[in-house]
Structure formats: structure tokens, C-alpha cells
């Protein structure tokens, strides 16, 4: 670790493996990590410092056995993450934010990824785009996740927070998939206590696995979450649930059908219904989702939202999704 001489606002920039960090890494909205941006050869990157695991250094005052145990855990974790990162790179479609460098420096592990500039559009603004533009975003996601599934990778934390909507040429929009911290290989499903995610987007089998019920975790977990994300991107809100259910997975497990927005074109509404199927074996695969999306052309524009004046979410919640400082890669 090399410290640079010039101090910026009480913070001394430093360099790790050639990447210069010019501001303190932040922990807000970062889960088990701190993150920020860094620069190498004039190019900007995201950098993430993992808070866990911590590699035991010689001066940590630990017993020999503890040091060995911690080192073993770190090596297993590093090996597992490396396997996941390799699969992400193999799955690259152009819209997966892929790792550039993964390393340890002293007691912490770091991940460098490409930097993505957000459009900073709100969910409501996205939902008011043309159906053609929204269909492009759904197809981008369909392709990304079908490639991940093809390589046996489960993202396991698909949600709006982990998507970046980016403005491209001619004011077109595309979507970038970020944050693979919860991801796992289909062949190496995490233990019950290690499953991560957001309950808003849990698949029914994810919840069952978390409570110790028999459940098979596959890329179909992402299909369920994508169904919820598709609904949000199309109409700006979550599917409607009955008063007894707090989450979509809960409604599905209770045998209740989440109510999908009627403004969504029928073909897309039917597709989302198939994605929210309770039984993962009967649920549509993400490859089939992508194939169905490719066939959808000339969909009718969605009628305007009559409730557009009433915010569906607290303002800070909707805004935070797209705010640049909330990226978690």
C-alpha cells in the first residue's frame, strides 16, 4: 500500500495495486463492505473492500490455531469468490459489471470492477418510458441472466438496487447488473445460514431453504426475482398483495396470487405470471423468458397511470435506487 503525499480534505489518498483511492471508502448501503471509486491510468473504477472475512496478520495477537483456522476460512472464501467471478466473466453479455481485479492487501480483500455512470432516473420515470424502451431493458436482463444460468451461476440478490440504468446514445437506456456478493454456483449452494438476499425478492424456495425445509436453489431463484423486477420496471410498483401477505414469496407460498398491474400488456403480464410460479420445476426458465421476450414486437403502449400523482414509495426510497452514491458493486 503506497500513500500519496497530497492530502484531500483530511484524507490522504493511497494506492492499492496501482489503483489510487482518492476518497474514504463508504459503508452506507454496502452490506458487508465498504466501497468507493478509484483511478488507474486515468480510468475510473469501483473499488469494494470486504469487511469480512478478515485475514489474520502476524500482529493480530491470536493463537497459532486461531490463525490457521482463519487463514483456512479466508482461502476457502477467496477460492469460492474467484470461481464465481470467473463464471461472471464467462457470462459477459456487455451488461454485467464484471470484476477487473480481486486481491488481498494486508488483512482485507478488495474487488475492482468497471465503473458505470447512472442515468439517475427515478423508477417512475423509467416506468413512463415507451413500451419499446422498456422491452429493450427486459431483453437486456433476459440475456444477462440466461448467460449466467447457462454457466450455472445464481445471482441470488436480484433487485432494483442491484441494477443500474444507464443512458446511452440517442437517449436510449440500458441496464447493468451489479453486486454478485450473494452469488453462488449451482453446484455449490450456500449453507442454510449463509443464504443472502432481500425478502422483497425472495423466491419461495429461498425462504424454504432458509427455514431448513427441503428446497433446491437453482437459477430459477433469479427468475422469480426478475418477475418482480419486470413488474416494477413496467409499471413502477410491486405486484399488489393481500393484507395477510407482506412479500410476494409469502403470498405465493400461501396459495394467493399476486395481483399484476392491468396496464401491463397481456403478453408481458402472462410472462410475469409464469416467472412467479411457486414450483421452481414448473417455473419458466430464464432462457425461455428471453426467447419469449424476443418474440414480443409491436406491443401496445401502456395507458397512463391514474395514480401517478401519488408516490408509491417514499421519495427517498425511489430516488435512492438511481443515486450514483448508492451503487454497490
Amino acid at each position: 500500500m503506497a500513500e500519496l503525499n497530497s492530502e484531500i480534505g483530511g484524507f490522504t489518498p493511497y494506492t492499492l495495486r496501482g489503483y489510487t483511492i482518492t476518497e474514504p471508502l463508504k459503508a452506507d448501503n454496502g452490506g458487508f463492505s465498504r466501497w468507493g471509486s478509484c483511478i488507474k491510468d486515468g480510468r475510473r473504477f469501483f473499488i469494494k473492500q470486504f469487511i469480512n472475512p478478515v485475514y489474520p496478520t502476524a500482529d493480530a495477537g491470536l493463537s497459532e490455531d486461531t490463525i490457521m483456522r482463519k487463514k483456512k476460512r479466508c482461502a476457502e472464501w477467496f477460492s469460492g469468490r474467484t470461481a464465481v467471478y470467473k463464471k461472471i466473466i464467462e457470462s459477459q453479455t456487455g451488461n454485467l459489471v464484471t470484476p477487473v481485479l480481486f486481491f488481498r492487501e494486508r488483512s482485507h480483500y478488495y474487488l475492482i470492477t468497471d465503473y458505470v455512470e447512472s442515468s439517475e432516473l427515478t423508477l417512475r420515470q423509467i416506468a413512463s418510458c415507451s413500451i419499446a424502451q422498456k422491452l429493450v431493458m427486459l431483453k437486456v436482463l433476459g440475456l444477462c441472466f440466461s448467460k449466467l444460468a447457462e454457466n450455472g451461476l445464481v445471482h441470488a440478490d436480484v433487485k432494483l438496487d442491484n441494477l443500474i440504468v444507464k443512458k446511452t446514445t440517442n437517449d436510449r437506456l440500458t441496464v447493468k447488473v451489479i453486486d454478485f456478493d450473494a452469488s453462488y454456483l449451482e453446484s455449490a449452494v450456500p449453507e442454510r445460514g449463509e443464504i443472502q438476499g432481500d425478502p422483497v425478492y425472495y423466491a419461495p424456495e429461498t425462504f424454504l431453504a432458509m427455514i431448513g425445509e427441503p428446497a433446491k436453489l437453482t437459477p430459477k431463484v433469479d427468475v422469480f426475482a426478475l418477475g418482480i423486477v419486470f413488474h416494477q420496471l413496467l409499471c413502477g410498483r410491486l405486484p399488489e398483495l393481500g393484507s395477510d401477505d407482506s412479500y410476494v414469496y409469502e403470498a405465493v407460498l400461501n396459495g394467493n396470487t399476486p395481483e399484476l398491474c392491468e396496464r401491463i400488456p397481456t403478453a408481458l403480464r402472462e410472462l410475469i405470471s409464469k416467472m412467479l410460479e411457486k414450483d421452481p420445476d414448473r417455473r419458466i426458465s430464464v432462457n425461455e423468458v428471453f426467447e419469449e421476450l424476443k418474440k414480443m414486437n409491436g406491443l401496445p403502449e401502456m395507458p397512463p397511470d391514474d395514480s401517478a400523482d401519488e408516490p408509491e414509495f417514499p421519495e427517498e426510497e425511489t430516488d435512492s435506487w438511481y443515486a450514483a452514491e448508492d451503487f454497490d458493486v
Binding site: Y55, A75, T98, P99, L101
Partner: peptide, 11 residues
Amino acid sequence: DDGTSGESYSP
């Protein structure tokens, strides 16, 4: 054990 140059992975 000095921890100054840990494992790394880079495509």
C-alpha cells in the same frame, strides 16, 4: 504472514 502482498485474481 506479513500480509503486504496477498493472493490476487485478475482476468
